[in-house]
Simulated assay, not measured.
Amino acid sequence: MFSITRRAVAKIALSGAIALTAASSAIPAFAADKITVGALRFTSHSPSFVAFERGYFKDQGLDVEFKFFQAAQPMAVAIASGDVDYGVTAISGALINLANKGAIKIIGGALQEEPGIDGQIILVSKQAYDDGVTSPAELKGRSFGITQAGSSFHYMAHKIAQKEGFDGSEIKTIPLQKVGAIIGALKSGQVDSWTIVPHIAKALSKGPAVEQIGMVADYIPDYQVTTVFTSTENAENRQDLTKRFLKAFSMGAADFNAALVDKTAGDQAAEDMVVLIHKYVYASKPYEKAAPSIRNGAMRINKDAALNVTNVKDQLAWFQSEGLVSKDITIETLVNTDYVDTF
């Protein structure tokens, strides 16, 4: 028989703890996957900002860096080149052509027009308005600002013309490359008209140089304004990474919708959401001036990144009818439906 003193027990325990600590420190921690996310400084891109700020990307093992753009087509090129891993923006001719080359895939939906929620607004310069362009029917023969040929602005202009009964070619589309350049041209009367998301449109129409004449939703019901897309490599061979990105993005979208679209989360949640978004949208403006515009830009982001394939098919058909993309491209070439619900 022998006895162990309390001091001996303490020494044994201490030496065991030290050994355990040393062993655990020798186990390498798994590093987060670094990804670059493309975005525009629009309220409609808020799900990505929310997912970043609230740690949803981090919770999914993603170390996110943002890269900001001023138009859709350069982002598509950046996805194809590998400079950006995931992006959210409108469908463009460049995006479709890159998909046809096997470089990128649409994997989900984001911003969508919805009845009862303010969406994209049709604007005209005060000069054009005073000259009789007081409704979209008078856009025939008038100029319309777009970023590039084959952009979403180009698509919207032609769909407006189609419903008003005249050919899209009878609207003079003026490529100005950047949203900021279109704003300047519209305010100065260098272009007659434009369409844009509400956080920009409402601010412009409150000034003396721009008038509102209609809503895009009246011309393109259920328009899938923006989509989530990535490289074909990510979509087909990095499925776990892509699922984690979409999960975090969808969580950000749910918070955004609850706070500013459905307004079910309460006043404080809405205020907190606007404060968060202000870090990225109108960040150079004082909060008091930026907040109303951010609230005005709250359009529906599809739950769980569901994708309106019906409208995407319509967009593809329009690009093909204009000769902007090959007539041989199928919806399967453009969209990978493995990740989200489609309708």
Rank of each mutant, 00 (worst) to 15 (best):
150 G>Q: 12
247 K>G: 02
42 F>W: 06
205 S>R: 06
4 I>L: 15
226 T>S: 13
41 R>Y: 05
61 G>Q: 09
99 A>Q: 09
103 A>R: 13
326 S>F: 04
58 K>I: 03
165 G>S: 04
166 F>A: 01
56 Y>Q: 04
272 D>A: 11
110 A>E: 13
27 I>D: 03
227 T>P: 01
259 A>I: 01
231 S>I: 01
104 I>F: 02
74 P>W: 00
17 A>Y: 03
327 K>D: 13
104 I>H: 00
214 G>K: 10
238 R>L: 07
20 L>W: 02
102 G>M: 12
88 V>T: 07
62 L>Y: 02
115 P>V: 10
284 S>N: 15
18 I>W: 06
98 L>N: 05
303 K>S: 14
79 I>P: 00
126 K>H: 08
73 Q>F: 06
141 G>C: 14
307 L>N: 11
180 G>F: 02
300 R>T: 13
327 K>N: 15
273 M>I: 05
140 K>Q: 12
224 Q>P: 10
317 A>E: 11
15 S>W: 08
267 D>R: 02
142 R>Q: 12
66 F>A: 07
271 E>G: 00
338 D>M: 06
255 D>T: 12
150 G>I: 08
115 P>N: 11
76 A>T: 08
101 K>R: 12
58 K>P: 05
94 A>F: 06
14 L>V: 14
59 D>A: 15
304 D>F: 13
135 S>W: 09
230 T>H: 03
156 M>R: 11
198 P>T: 05
204 L>I: 07
65 E>Q: 15
39 A>W: 00
277 I>Y: 09
127 Q>K: 15
158 H>Y: 14
212 Q>N: 10
272 D>C: 06
82 G>W: 00
72 A>L: 01
155 Y>I: 12
185 A>L: 13
241 L>V: 07
157 A>E: 06
169 S>P: 06
301 I>H: 03
115 P>R: 14
74 P>L: 00
296 N>S: 10
144 F>N: 03
256 F>W: 11
307 L>A: 08
275 V>P: 00
205 S>M: 12
173 T>K: 11
294 I>C: 07
341 D>R: 13
11 K>N: 07
318 W>Y: 15
264 T>C: 11
41 R>C: 01
340 V>F: 04
257 N>H: 12
31 A>R: 11
145 G>V: 08
322 E>C: 00
190 Q>F: 08
13 A>Q: 13
29 A>E: 09
310 T>F: 06
313 K>H: 08
130 D>V: 06
329 I>A: 09
197 V>Q: 06
206 K>E: 14
277 I>K: 05
94 A>P: 02
268 Q>T: 04
244 R>K: 15
91 I>W: 00
308 N>T: 10
197 V>A: 15
186 L>R: 08
193 S>W: 05
305 A>H: 06
31 A>N: 09
76 A>P: 04
282 Y>Q: 06
175 P>R: 02
335 V>F: 08
80 A>G: 03
74 P>A: 02
236 E>R: 14
63 D>V: 11
70 Q>D: 14
49 F>Q: 10
190 Q>D: 11
323 G>W: 09
337 T>G: 03
